[in-house]
Write a protein that binds this DNA or RNA. Sequence first.
DNA 1: AGTGTTAGGTTAACGCCGTTAACTAAACGG
DNA 2: CCGTTTAGTTAACGGCGTTAACCTAACACT
Lengths: 217, 217
Amino acid sequence: MEVSQVPPVAGDTESAILTAARDLLAEGGLEALSMRAVAARVGTTPTAIYHYFQNKEDLVSQVVARGFQRSEAHLWRAIEAFPVGSIERLAVLGQGYIRFAIEHKPYFKVIFGIQADQPRKLDDVPGRGGYGVLRHCVVDAMEAGTIRQADPDIVVLYLWSIVHGLVTITMACESDSLLEGSAIEIPDGESASGFLYQQFRDLIDIGLVPVKSEATA
Amino acid sequence: MEVSQVPPVAGDTESAILTAARDLLAEGGLEALSMRAVAARVGTTPTAIYHYFQNKEDLVSQVVARGFQRSEAHLWRAIEAFPVGSIERLAVLGQGYIRFAIEHKPYFKVIFGIQADQPRKLDDVPGRGGYGVLRHCVVDAMEAGTIRQADPDIVVLYLWSIVHGLVTITMACESDSLLEGSAIEIPDGESASGFLYQQFRDLIDIGLVPVKSEATA
DNA sequence: AGTGTTAGGTTAACGCCGTTAACTAAACGG
DNA sequence: CCGTTTAGTTAACGGCGTTAACCTAACACT
């Protein structure tokens, strides 16, 4: 079949592959992303992919890296609307994280997914998926006095753990079953993202433990 | 080959399959657990497995369910050593969760892992992987006044999110790379489990936000 | 005793998968 | 004009989950 003498999109098969892989990942998760499927969508043979990527893992990780880069840029843009050092900046970051996880589930799952042995992966991503932004905002908020003084790295871990834990637990249990018999439930019609965000804010406000000054009262 | 007239372990091929599957999962993660590998270890053909389990997913989920049951029993035993309502009970639960996640990484990853579409899974597990125990202890601690009064379900979610987030983030980034450039690091020689546990306690103590009474000071 | 049914397997095969080896054809630099 | 690189091909290998069809021993029942 020698219909077209010129490669369809003028040369860059590589980005066509990345795009196809991204779409497949988004549509059907990791199991839908096979070398053969990607090739078919691009219009080449599976083996051609190996000219641009070492293997499937390499391809996937580059797809994911791309997604994360865009996500971090999004975060930076999102916080601009709120004043430096404000707690709203922290909140909007949490919201962004939750939204990204939900809207780009497959990306998210690949990164924090199964991977028998080798983790790290996040290293490849500049800013490590928003870590830089978050730390930045935490430091600002401390200097502004909006949040309690403490080791910023610990606080970052605190915030990140809560949002990340919230998201992954919810993903694993899927809303209703999650806390059956408990008072927590997603009101019908509310978006999962919005619900999680509210939980996040509640959890941050909880504080817990320090009965100290209140105990005697 | 008709060497043995009697099935090797007197009839229960099923539990032999489960055991083999469990071992393979523990040794090499999910990718090492193939029907053919399980069959080879048990000494049958792959297709025989389909007499006891619907498909691979069914097999895996039963293996995992077994592991979780044992884990919850472990938790109940662990808290016995500490007084009812004490914060130590909560701490030891967190520690148990962390330890289980690390020591049974493959189990843990299967449950909170990739699974393209269908989550829930935790429903099959009695007590939902320690949720029951945790809630029990939280209520006790509130009645005893050791922790701040609040909706127990929210507090449970708070604690669970922190531990779970901590564990999964660490697993995805693997210690050193996790917070490179940050002050947080696992001291050489310290176990990952111990380190995570310390973080957990720190995070719980943080509380955050309520500058309220302190702000003016 | 003979018969039907079920449990517990077997063999063979299908259609996927990731990956490799060997080859080809066009483009380009000297 | 030649050598190399780039971009792609075809053919094949071994492994995967799963299915269909078949076999065989054990048991239940008349």
